[in-house]
Structures are given as C-alpha cells and as structure tokens.
Amino acid sequence: MIIAEQKPMEEILEMLAPYKKILLAGCGACVTVCQAGGEKEVGVLASQIRLARKDAGNPIEVLEMTMTRQCEPEFMEEAEDAMKEVDAVLSIACGIGVQLMAKTFFDKPALPGLNTTFLGFPEEHGVFTERCAACGNCVLHLTGGICPIARCSKSLLNGPCGGSQDGKCEISPDVECAWQLIYDRLKALGQLENLENIIPPKKWITSRDGGPRKIVREDLRI
C-alpha cells in the first residue's frame, strides 16, 4: 500500500496561516492503515491545529471528515457540502487524494497534510518499509522476489556494488544489502545460475523517465 507520514506541525501551520475555516479531510484506505490519515488522525490533528491557533490568538474553525477514499471521483461528493463552507481543504490522504480534491474543488486551495513517502508494508506494527518503486517493468522473477530497484540504494541490476558488507548496505548499517538478500534467496531456491544471466540496462521509459504514465484499458471503458 501507499505509506505516508504527517508533515511537521510547523509546516502545516504555515500552510494554514491565511485561512480562518478549513476542512480537514482524511481518507479511509491506505493512509488509515498506515495510521497517517484515518479518522483517528483527523480528530487528533484537528485538535492540534485548533489548539495551536487558539494559543496564537488567531482561532481557526476546522471541519472534520474522513472520506471513503480520496482517489475516486465519485467519493468527492462526500465533501461537497463542507467545501462550500470553507476557505481551503487540508487533505491527509496521499498526494493522489490531494490532487483529486484540487481538481474537483477547483476554486478552493487543497493543501497536503502528509508527505506521501513510498510503496511498502508494515514489517512489524509501526515499522513500515519500502518494497516497490513502481518502475513499470518488474524484474522480481529474476531476482528471487527481492526488488533491486526499490531496495538497493543504487538500484543496481547485476549484483552488489563494492560497498556491501556483512549483508548490510554501505549507506547505513541499518539497511540490508538488497543484493545479499537476492543472493541468499536465489541460493535457497537453487537458482544461483540466474545471476549469470546479465540483466540488460533497464528501459526507464516505463518509469518516470518517460513522463507521466497512463494506462488505458479499452475493455474497461464505459
């Protein structure tokens, strides 16, 4: 899922400085699960904003709402009434949600309350790690199910760099070397010979290098 975290309070307060009444909009999907933007966080953040502004002698009215999912046009309806009342919306969905709010409510500023950080999963409760960089051309079948793009700091495709040490990446002893993991996994699978096949330079055109990506499924279009 998409993993995000709340922006520092200072930044949020600065963004909100010009406004007197806002909608704080959470999202019920990924950011609920990674505990950054669900209904609970909406309540807590709303209180924090009100408190800070009250203390600064510049009170703000904060409407609270958690939408089913901020990344579907249909769900935008849920915010329609509230949006009429406010000066701006602070969205604590991922960047997709913020943009859909901006598009739907064209005349009101949509502000991001989160930093959308990566695609990953909770390794343990409260510890989230990155797993996929959405490169658009998956190579997991060649690398023992461990992504060299997202998990190798240098996104190397054909074995480790010279800095791999005791299974750790040279950028930090807390980061596992993806290529050590790939080697271990391939060994366990009895597929070490995979390593002899050179993976040719990757066509990054499927990734961000080809500009914004788009998928059109004619069969699905209504």
């Binding site: 609920t32 699960v33 505990q35 669900g38 209904e39 609970k40 958690t66």
Partner: peptide
C-alpha cells in the same frame, strides 16, 4: 474483557 485498547488504537475509529 472490555479494556478498550483496540478502541483507542483503531485508526478508522471503527
């Protein structure tokens, strides 16, 4: 046992 731990941790207030 009605301790409410789940209530206070649920991110969806469900």
């Amino acid at each position: 046992d009605g301790c409410g731990l789940c209530v206070s941790e649920c991110p969806a207030k469900a």
